[in-house]
Every structure is written in C-alpha cells, then in structure tokens.
C-alpha cells in the first residue's frame, strides 16, 4: 500500500508500548504494537519533559489507547491514554514481559497487522499480571506467534510418514519440516542438530498443556530452537541479561 502522499490518522487505537528510545532533548520514539495497524514507530514530542502528561502513561505492559497521525515511517503520537488497570508486572513476570516484547520487536515486521497475535499478547500480559505460571504463558505465546507469522509448528503428525504422533516415541524436530520419529538406538544420521522431544511433549504443546515437568523442559527447548531458527543467528538480549543475572 502506498501511503507516502496521504496523511493517515488513527484514533483511540488499542495498543501497547513495546519499547522507547530517547529522541533529541525531550522526545521519545515509541515502538508500539497496535491491534489494527501492527507494529508502528511513533514520535512522542516532549514526552521526556518533567511535566509531560504522557510520561506516566507511555509504559510497557499497560493497555493503552493511542492516537497518531502518520505520513511515512515515523508517525506522530497525538494522545496516549490508559485503557485498563492491569497490575504492574513484577519480578520474573516483568522479565517475561520484556522477553515477549523483544520477540515482537525482532520477529514482527512493522505495519503488518496481526489482530489475533495482538489479542494473544494482551492475554499473555494479563495472565502474567495475574501471576499465572510463567512457562505456560510463554510457551503459549511463542507457539501462537510462530503460527501467526506463518511458521505454525507441526505437532500432531510425523513429518516423514504422516502418521499420528505417539506419546511414547521420541522425535527429532527439524525446524523447517517438523517432527520425525527417531528409530532405534542408533538414531538417524544428522539428528545431532535437531532438538529431540517425546511425542507426549508435542501433543501437550498442541493442547497448550504444561502440567508435566518434562513437557515444560522439552517444550521450552523446542520452541527456543524454532525461534532461534527464525532469528537466523541473532541472540535475544533478554535471554543474555537473564543468564548473566543468574550467574551472580
């Protein structure tokens, strides 16, 4: 869509702040994720002034209503309002929130609307805010994000044979293809690079079931590998920062 010539206006759009960067002396560039317009970059003029009305509002993880006008890549934020009173994320939940934001910043192209992904994101934040188990929230979001971006993981059929996944078998997961049953003790040549998980994990993932500890561990490793594949070698800052903290 060519919108270079037209100035678009968006009013009261549901959205979240993903991240902000200082811009010049008193302004902010806001990376926002909106329901109907996807990821947009917006300039918030004067938002870093001590008495700016936007200062206490432009915080990540809070549902907002955003109004802006745009004629190119960078829109101008006109208003930002609080849309719901979510309890602020705390502790590890806050770290999980940063992680979700980084996934969106890295993997979701700008101006590509994904309403269902937006709803999944809003729901994930609400669950983190309500102290839901983190693993279930993260895995659910990762899976939905991959699906929304067109990389829905195959979880119920063996990619080589087309047969239904058996809970007791082990499967090597090839990121571009899907799970392939590992045969015998010798395995398959070249399995080394792929994550190997149980059929049970795949089936649990398909149903968003994370009660079992083994499922949680394997699902985490599997989704991590699938996301790493989409990131093409980029490392996630949030993961590095968390690892460094755990070393102290």
């Amino acid at each position: 869509m060519d919108n270079r010539a037209t100035r678009r206006r968006a009013d009261n759009e549901a959205g979240f702040v993903l991240h902000t960067h200082p811009y010049k002396e008193t302004s902010l560039v806001v990376e926002a994720f909106t329901r109907r317009f996807g990821r947009v970059a917006l300039l918030a003029r004067g938002a870093r002034r001590p008495r700016s009305a936007m200062r206490g509002v432009l915080l990540a993880f809070h549902p907002l209503r955003l109004s802006w006008s745009a004629s190119g890549e960078l829109g101008t934020l006109v208003a930002a309002e609080w849309a719901a009173g979510l309890r602020s994320l705390e502790g590890l939940g806050l770290m999980c929130g940063f992680y979700l934001n980084e996934l969106l910043l890295r993997l979701l192209p700008r101006e590509d609307p994904h309403e269902e992904l937006f709803d999944a994101y809003a729901g994930s934040l609400a669950r983190l805010s309500a102290r839901a188990p983190h693993a279930a929230v993260l895995r659910g979001f990762e899976r939905r994000m991959l699906a929304e971006l067109g990389y829905a993981p195959v979880l119920e059929r063996d990619a080589a044979t087309g047969l239904a996944i058996e809970p007791e078998r082990r499967y090597a997961y090839e990121p571009d293809r899907g799970p392939v049953a590992v045969t015998g003790r010798e395995g398959r040549p070249g399995v080394g690079a792929d994550v190997v998980v149980s059929g049970r994990t795949l089936l649990d993932l398909a149903r968003d079931e994370y009660e079992c500890a083994e499922t949680r561990d394997e699902a985490r490793a599997l989704l991590r590998a699938l996301i790493a594949h989409r990131l093409g070698g980029q490392t996630l800052h949030t993961r590095t920062v968390l690892m460094e903290l755990q070393e102290l």
Partner: peptide, 19 residues
C-alpha cells in the same frame, strides 16, 4: 539500570560491586 531490551545487564551496572 538493567535494560533487557537494550542488552544492558548486571555487569554493565556493576551489580557484583554493589553486592
């Protein structure tokens, strides 16, 4: 401060020295 999205971690803000 820690800023996970900018890659600013524990070492960058001297948390080991604070401890």
């Amino acid at each position: 401060r820690l800023s996970p999205l900018d890659g600013v971690g524990a070492r960058d803000i001297g948390l080991d020295r604070l401890l």
